[in-house]
Amino acid sequence: MEKVMMKLGGLTCPSCLAKIQKGVEAVDGTADVKVLFNAGKVKFTLDPAVSSPETVQEGIEKMGYTVQGTKMKEV
């Protein structure tokens, strides 16, 4: 499992928060999704065998937000 943190752009309202939360949860292999509105970040764990951070990033960008940076750590 990998711990992933993405710095987001374009987060403007708290309803974006629920949207990103649902969008990331919808990707298989993600768990413990936490969207930090004030920090403008999303944190989650990812099973690299099932999905990749790129897939998640695509999903987020499709909803109209930008991913400014990604950090990963093995757990």
Partner: peptide, 16 residues
């Protein structure tokens, strides 16, 4: 409208 559509895609009825 565009924000609303992307919200509906993840089955969320947002303010938009």
């Amino acid at each position: 409208l565009l924000t609303a559509i992307s919200a509906l895609r993840v089955r969320l009825v947002s303010i938009d």
